[in-house]
């Protein structure tokens, strides 16, 4: 690595620190949720290291816990993480000219909401060295936090663990309520998805539809409704 690239890498590392700290606490919750659902600690840690995504991993926990079908896993992940395709697409316009394919393939692993947001906000064309520096600490934070959360939970008594079950949903609420408060479109999409999901739950005794596919169905309908009713202006996506 030449001098300029070393500097870029260091800049990336520095920018990644706040993201890594944020990830530490979220993945802590992931680790303890995994354990409370009966999934072994080492499995949770490997999932975090290889997936590096919050919503997708949390959804996967529910599927793994009931040993659902592989097809459901594929479609759930595809749908929940589809937004990364948009970010990846956006980054393809942002990277420096003539970036070789192997560098693009390396960077792809680190595309998350927060890392993308930071990289996309940069004025200059994106270099592989900067992006790798940027994603390194968040990856460590995400993986280490998972281990820490899981290891802590194993030592906890049952009634505390049971109360911890709501942690993940508390996080989800903290993610969706603030934007829903400000944007009618997001509020209605969330409400529609929630109502549909409740209906599916009520109807689940009559319809033989599994949780994973119910989630996909609710998401497709609610997001399509949002796109049809409230099309966003260009470059509004985060």
């Amino acid at each position: 690595m030449d001098k300029q690239n070393t500097l870029r890498f260091q800049n990336g590392l520095k920018d990644g620190i706040p993201i890594a700290l944020g990830y530490l606490s979220v993945s802590f919750t992931f680790g303890l949720t995994a354990i409370s659902m009966g999934i072994p600690l080492e499995v949770a840690v490997v999932i975090s290291l290889t997936n590096l995504t919050s919503a997708g991993q949390f959804a996967a926990l529910e599927l793994i816990a009931i040993f659902s079908s592989y097809t459901e896993m594929i479609f759930t992940q595809l749908l929940i993480n589809l937004r990364y395709a948009l970010m990846s697409l956006s980054l393809s316009q942002k990277v420096e000219k003539n970036m070789p394919t192997h560098q693009r393939m390396l960077m792809s692993y680190g595309i998350t909401d927060e890392i993308f947001a930071l990289a996309a906000a940069k004025e200059q064309p994106l270099t592989c060295a900067y992006f790798c520096g940027l994603m390194l600490l968040p990856i460590c934070g995400w993986t280490f936090g998972t281990w820490l959360g899981g290891a802590t939970t194993t030592l906890m008594p049952d009634d505390i663990r049971s109360a911890m079950g709501i942690a993940i949903y508390g996080m989800f609420l903290a993610i969706i309520i603030p934007p829903a408060k400000k944007q009618t479109a997001i509020r209605n999409v969330v409400l529609l998805a929630a109502v549909l999901s409740c209906l599916m739950e009520i109807l689940s005794s009559f319809l033989s539809i599994s949780g994973g596919f119910a989630l996909i169905l609710c998401t497709l309908v609610a997001a399509a409704f949002g796109a049809w009713r409230y099309p966003i202006q260009k470059e509004n996506s985060r």
Partner: peptide, 14 residues
């Protein structure tokens, strides 16, 4: 794609 994360989280939470 913009609305997908919100729809997913809404359906997963409730």
């Amino acid at each position: 794609l913009y609305y997908v994360p919100y729809a997913v989280l809404g359906a997963m939470t409730f």
